[in-house]
Design a protein around this nucleic acid. Structure first.
Length: 217
DNA sequence: GAGTTTGAAACT
DNA sequence: CAGTTTCAAACTC
């Protein structure tokens, strides 16, 4: 038999899209530290202390919202650009700044949003990119957290062809050549396959450059 | 559940 | 704008 409480819970989760309750203690839920506030929502069923993120404190709340908007007009906009021409991927508008998580834990806003890090990120030792897209990620990596490549190149789209990109491209070509050898292709066939791979690499690079001349700014 | 780690947000 | 502090979530034990 269903209890009243259970019913209430199911109604709640239905009407509130299972909003996560916050546990703020010091921010009064009036700063962006509070997820409810940051999502533009009123606290409900949270375990926060001294909460002012409700209609009883409407004035304080509006004032806090204004303060945030003064600081950043996009403060309440989604930080995720949801699409790149229908692609599943998105990108973080400001990127992350992770140092210790490798961008592989939920501390990382990109990882949490299930998106890969991009050139706007300033993360260190990033591992948040797809292995199957080594080429593209190498392009991206080279322009953010790649400290192994001697010095940082400017984040301009023109400087996409960095050491890391060259290295990744060579890696792809080598892999292709090895594969051709393993498959027992003739020399001509192998050369053709490798050249085609080179073409793919160039396409990726050009796509990336194009993409970022449009997404950045 | 307490304690630690983490990185965004806030502050200086 | 860079460095530091505050904060709450994520994580670990």
């Amino acid at each position: 038999m269903e209890t009243v409480g259970q019913h209430k819970d199911s109604m709640r989760s239905f009407s509130e899209k299972s909003k996560k309750p916050c546990h703020c203690t010091k921010s009064q839920c009036l700063k962006l530290y509070c997820d409810c506030f940051a999502n533009g929502e009123i606290c409900s069923d949270c375990s926060c202390i001294n909460c002012c993120n409700n209609m009883e404190h409407a004035t304080d709340r509006y004032r806090a919202i204004k303060t945030c908007l003064d600081r950043n007009p996009d403060a309440f906009r989604s930080k995720i650009n949801s699409s790149i021409q229908g692609d599943v991927k998105g990108s973080h508008t400001r990127g992350c700044n992770c140092k210790s998580s490798g961008c592989l834990k939920n501390y990382c806003e990109c990882y949490k949003a299930k998106i890969m890090c991009s050139s706007v990120c300033k993360c260190v030792s990033c591992s948040n990119y797809s292995r199957s897209e080594v080429k593209e990620s190498a392009v991206e990596k080279s322009s953010h957290s790649d400290y192994s490549s001697t010095h940082r190149t400017a984040k301009s789209s023109v400087s996409c062809i960095t050491d890391a990109v060259v290295e990744a491209t060579c890696g792809c070509l080598l892999a292709q050549a090895e594969e051709a050898e393993k498959e027992g292709l003739t020399r001509v066939q192998a050369e053709r396959a490798t050249l085609e791979e080179f073409g793919h690499c160039l396409t990726q690079i050009v796509h990336f450059m194009f993409k970022h001349t449009h997404t950045q700014r």
